[in-house]
Design a binder for these strands. Structure first.
Length: 575
RNA sequence: GGUCCCAUCGUCUAGAGGCCCAGGACGAAGCCCUUUCAAGGCUUAAACGCGGGUUCGAAUCCCGCUGGGAUCACCA
């Protein structure tokens, strides 16, 4: 066969050892040394050691926060450890500032790792299993690779990109299975001399695992989320160490690092499921037990009729900056994610409205296997409820922080009178059933903007007054009456007094009376109150009127009335 | 194409042979309460992809089909 142009017999044991020495002359350690250097963790039985292992590509995906949340809860609920490991083995995709972004996001969302980089500027790395950055662990990977080569379980391959491309095309043409395996694997059985010649010519090989081929065996695993899975064992010679930069591929780094860092529960996206046979093979080759696996379904979105993974290219909500910009409280995003992970969270939250969510008994086994659809409406609902539990001072502080960064105009307006701002956020808040009208911080202007004169002026300039259509003198009479508002007057008295006024000015005292003889009235009491509402706020939906007036204060109430009257006489569109 | 995974209301899901003519939540509609807007309370519409088995009995077990997804890189 042409493809096996270097047909040599399998090298002997001594040849393997020589090959290893030839490839890794600078490595004098053995896997046992590293295993001893990173001993098993003194943890209670059943404690999970988990990690979040992102690549620093400059983008924090909501799926990453989701995965961290799951990993951290799984660890901490069992008295274990959760750490952060930076997987920077692809230098081409790396972007500056990524690590800062990752760490900042984890801290923001209460997902601080126990080990790894826990702080940046200045950088602080914690933990006894350091370094937690893969590019700083090359000696470790090379030690394990050398050992594999010495035992004939891995070998150098000098194929160029062009050769690999040609191979793939040939395989496609022949309808053969794609990949580097069996007889297609040209360097599988190269002689020591052939390797030496390439090395002397200055070429650098990739190190590939020598997988059994053909391989009829099957692997089994009990996934923590998916249960029992059976798959054909691996038979392709995957790259372990890349020729380009000598750094490990994900597969090898995962096996070596998770072994050495004593991870016993690997939580990761389910796109890794197909490479589990390779991983299991590698764990077995290095003679170490495989950890448990929990393959998480990705958060998805509808694209036409197909459901697909949330994409950083197409979906703004995939990027965490979306949530910061919109001003969702971290707690809301966390609880939404918790709800996706364990739908029983909603029942728990209903039964424990004020308990911090870390008290929720999260269960990795209860996670769904199908990709859930991202649902902004649900997030909004959760967010509204979360915000309703905050005090006025908390809301004010959070809005101010958000506005300083994302909306300077709102920030200035709120800062102009802090006491007033806080009073605004207190409207209908500390009651048995607090008002739930703020979805996120960017929604604050819509919800309560009318309280603030500059924002109110903008809204009027933009939308005018949505005043109901009654004779002008009726409206002005109502407004003039309201101008005499006394903040000291209790709500009930004020309402009774307004009702009397309504009856004296052509409005039915209640809806029932009005319905019985609609042609005898302008409208009913509620209709009249709408005039008051619009006159004061230029809005048709607002909180309780008495509270609004109380908060606005006499002066502002009078000014608003005057403004409404002026607008009416100047604007022909208002009756 | 190979391999693997998945399939209950529009959405998130509960459901591990009888408790299910399928339950909850969001969303939708309606009613009540109410000065209004919310909230809250009550009510309604809304689902087991299809076909075969197994069983006295299936959303639940088995097989097939269909549909979707993931993956098959010196990216992770």
């Amino acid at each position: 066969m042409h493809k096996g142009f270097w047909v040599t017999s399998d090298a002997s044991t001594t040849d393997h050892a020589q090959l290893a020495a030839l490839l890794f002359p600078h490595i004098d350690k053995t896997p046992a040394d590293w295993l001893a250097h990173y001993p098993p963790r003194p943890l209670p039985p059943g404690a999970f050691v988990t990690r979040y292992a992102p690549s620093p590509t400059g983008f924090v995906h909501i799926g990453s926060i989701y995965a961290s949340l799951v990993a951290r809860r799984a660890a901490h609920q069992t008295g274990g450890v959760f750490f952060l490991r930076i997987e920077d083995t692809d230098k081409k995709r790396e972007q500056d500032g990524s690590i800062e972004k990752i760490v900042a996001n984890m801290i923001n969302f209460g997902l601080q790792p126990d080990e790894g980089i826990v702080q940046v500027n200045p950088e602080i790395e914690l933990g006894a299993y350091a370094p937690y950055t893969q590019s700083e662990r090359v000696e470790i990977y090379e030690t394990f690779a050398k050992d594999l080569v010495a035992r004939g379980l891995a070998y150098p391959a000098f194929d160029t990109d062009a050769e690999l491309d040609a191979m793939r095309r040939a395989q496609e043409a022949q309808n053969a299975k794609p990949g580097y395996y069996g007889e297609w694997a040209r360097w599988r059985s190269a002689s020591l001399e052939q390797v030496r010649a390439k090395l002397e010519a200055g070429e650098r090989p990739a190190i590939r695992v020598r997988a059994p081929y053909p391989n009829a065996a099957h692997i089994q695993l009990e996934d923590e989320i998916r249960g029992f899975i059976d798959m054909p064992a691996n038979d392709t010679d995957a790259v372990l160490l890349k020729s380009s930069n000598r750094l490990p591929t994900y597969h090898f780094a995962h096996v070596v690092d998770d072994t050495l860092m004593r991870v016993n529960l690997v939580t990761r996206g389910d796109e890794w499921l197909p490479s589990v046979p390779l991983h299991l093979q590698l764990f077995s080759y290095i003679g170490q037990p495989a950890p448990k696996f929990a393959h998480i379904a990705p958060i998805a979105k509808m694209d036409g009729t197909a459901r697909r993974k949330l994409s950083k290219r197409k979906d703004p909500e995939a990027d965490m900056t979306y949530y910061y910009q919109a001003g969702y409280p971290e707690q809301a995003v966390t609880e939404y994610l918790l709800n996706l992970a364990n739908s029983s969270f909603q029942d728990w939250r209903r039964d424990n409205p004020r308990t911090p969510n870390h008290a929720f008994g999260f269960s990795i086994h209860k996670m769904g296997v199908a990709p859930p659809l991202f649902d902004l409406v649900k997030l909004n609902d959760i967010s509204k409820n979360v915000i309703a539990t905050f005090s006025a001072a908390e809301v004010y502080g959070l809005v101010q922080t958000w506005a300083n960064k994302h909306d300077p105009r709102i920030a200035a307006v709120l800062a102009a009178d802090p006491a007033y701002s806080e009073a605004v956020f207190n409207v209908e808040r500390m009651t048995a059933s607090p008002r739930k009208d703020i979805v996120n911080w960017s929604d604050v202007e819509r919800a309560v903007g009318f309280f603030f004169d500059p924002l109110f002026a903008d809204a009027v300039a933009r939308d005018g007054y949505p005043m109901p259509e009654y004779p002008r003198q009726v409206i002005t009479a109502i407004l003039d009456h309201v101008a005499g508002f006394d903040p000291a007057q209790p709500k009930e008295i004020w309402l009774a007094e307004m009702r009397t006024f309504a009856e004296a000015h052509g409005f039915a005292r209640d809806a029932k009376t009005y319905k019985q003889a609609p042609d005898q009235f302008h409208g009913h009491f509620g209709d009249m109150m709408m005039v008051v509402r619009v006159g004061l706020t230029a809005r048709t939906n607002t909180p309780d009127l008495h509270e609004i007036m109380h908060t606005l204060g006499t002066e502002r109430v009078r000014a608003r009335i005057a403004q409404a009257r002026a607008y009416m006489s100047s604007d022909a569109q208002m009756n």
